[in-house]
Design a protein around this nucleic acid. Structure first.
Length: 257
DNA sequence: ATGGTGGCCCGGCCA
């Protein structure tokens, strides 16, 4: 089963690239972030003609998450908070072929002294509670998306340049480790222990070509999936060429014995 | 040292 995550930075703007990428990679399940689509605007029918069922949680101009699957999709849960009437569209949970799939778009945080940073930490704690509510670590679960956290210094092009910034602060990294401690494994690090591998490069100033990026998009899997992992990659090709997102997709493959 | 890009939707916010 091939599962991918991709922050597309507007599904509308990315649709030509997204469709070409689907055809090339042939993923079974894709967790999408930053669809930037209104609640009813997800292109369910268009994707259905390509063999994908889908569930979207959108709010309009900002945020928006979705899961598409060609191996079944059921039991959607919209959001990760309990009293989520005003909840931003940052999490969606579905069941695909017996695997729990959670697509997440963690708040950016903006700056350490910004209220949005507190919101980010709160949201991450809600996410862990959400996992407790819906799953056990012994279940097959994939939590994938844009975490807006570089878990270690080797996940950023320059730890010095990032000092005092969000994405690398100790409380954020602690929140990330708390998710790992729940019973998850960083699938990319399962194969590439020490490598400097990035998933995001700023659109500005040629950051991609200067290799100035960060690894902030992650696919976390429970132990029952880790034992059946075949490979994990970052698809850097999707960051090249015409009208790319600022994020590259992460893709994993695991056997379903 | 600053601003650089790109997306929303058309001026300013967000990443």
């Amino acid at each position: 089963m091939k599962v991918a995550t991709w922050n597309v930075n507007s599904l509308t703007a990315r649709m030509p690239r997204f469709l070409a990428w689907l055809e090339e990679i042939e993923p079974d399940v894709v967790c999408i972030q930053e669809t930037k689509l209104k609640p009813d605007a997800f292109p369910h029918l268009q994707l259905e003609t390509l063999g994908y069922e889908s569930a979207g949680f959108g709010q309009g101009q900002w945020n928006g998450v979705a899961v598409i699957s060609r191996v079944g999709l059921s039991d959607p849960v919209y959001g990760v908070e309990i009293s989520g009437e005003l909840e931003e569209a940052r999490g969606i949970t579905v069941n695909c072929n017996g695997v729990g799939i959670v697509s997440v778009y963690v708040p950016n945080g903006r700056a350490l002294e910004n209220d949005h940073y507190k919101y980010k930490l709160q949201w991450l704690s809600h996410l862990r509670e959400h996992l407790d509510r819906h799953f056990k670590p012994s279940d097959k679960v994939v939590v994938a998306g844009d975490f807006n956290i570089a878990p270690e210094d080797k996940d950023v092009w320059s730890p010095e340049a990032m000092l005092g910034c969000t994405h690398v602060s100790e409380p954020e990294r602690e929140a990330f480790r708390s998710l790992i401690d729940w019973g998850l494994v960083d699938a990319l690090r399962h194969f590439y222990d020490q490598d400097r591998i990035f998933t995001w490069w700023d659109h500005r100033a040629g950051a991609f070509h200067k290799r100035q990026g960060m690894r902030i998009d992650h696919i976390l899997v429970t132990k029952p999936i880790e034992s059946d992992l075949n490979w994990a990659i970052v698809d850097r090709n999707a960051r090249k060429g015409e009208k790319p997102s600022d994020h590259a997709p992460v893709v994993i493959d695991f056997s379903m014995p």
